[in-house]
């Protein structure tokens, strides 16, 4: 077996620690384990081949996730039936905090919902919301890094993120009420 080159070793050291994050994001974007594996593999090969374009000292995780996201848009998304485009600006779900501040001000109910249900609720978000929420709140990318990866202004990232969280909270709250995890103190349904 040949000794890896200096560039190869540098790539290994910078990129391999992010395989977990790449796989998690791929899983949320594709919604399918087998496609997620292919997407991560394609991403890593592309990243290795364009390693010279990586600027040392910048966030390798952000750089890799940008490649993953572009690969997903170009090669994978077409395979899936696209959901009807959501009028993103029109989505303004109400803040769940107002509904629970008297009964569960700390939001303990979130922790009582099993992983699978939380991830299903994330997967059910409109694609444009889901990707910013996953990159920001699940993988810890900065607004600026997400804006660069998505090629949108930072303001767009922030507004999508705000709506994504509100929507996710609303869906988790509905689930918690349906399953009796939380009991609303009073209802306003008349």
């Amino acid at each position: 077996m040949a000794e890896p080159s200096t560039a190869g070793r540098a790539f290994d050291a910078e990129a391999l620690p992010h395989l977990d994050a790449l796989y998690r994001v791929a899983l949320r974007l594709t919604g399918d384990e087998s496609q997620a594996e292919d997407l991560v593999q394609d991403t890593m090969l592309k990243a290795y081949r364009s390693w010279r374009q990586y600027r040392p000292g910048t966030n390798a995780k952000g750089w890799l996730l940008t490649i993953l996201r572009n690969t997903f848009i170009n090669d994978y998304r077409r395979r899936k039936l696209e959901p009807v485009a959501t009028d993103l600006e029109a989505v303004e779900p109400h803040a769940i905090y107002r509904a629970v501040e008297d009964v569960d001000p700390e939001g303990a109910f979130f922790s009582k919902i099993v992983d699978q249900k939380v991830l299903e609720a994330v997967d059910a978000l409109p694609a444009e919301f889901r990707e910013v929420l996953v990159l920001s709140d699940m993988e810890g990318l900065r607004y600026g890094e997400i804006a660069e990866a998505l090629q949108v202004p930072v303001g767009t990232v922030k507004s999508r993120l705000f709506r994504a969280r509100r929507l996710l909270q609303a869906r988790l709250y509905d689930y918690a009420v349906e399953t009796g995890i939380i009991t609303p103190r009073e209802t306003h349904d008349g």
Binding site: L19, D20, Y23, S111, D115, V118, L119, M138, G140, L168
Partner: peptide, 11 residues
């Protein structure tokens, strides 16, 4: 909560 759910699965 979101961050901790994300970290429970890996490659």
């Amino acid at each position: 909560m979101l961050e901790s759910r994300a970290r429970r699965c890996g490659c």
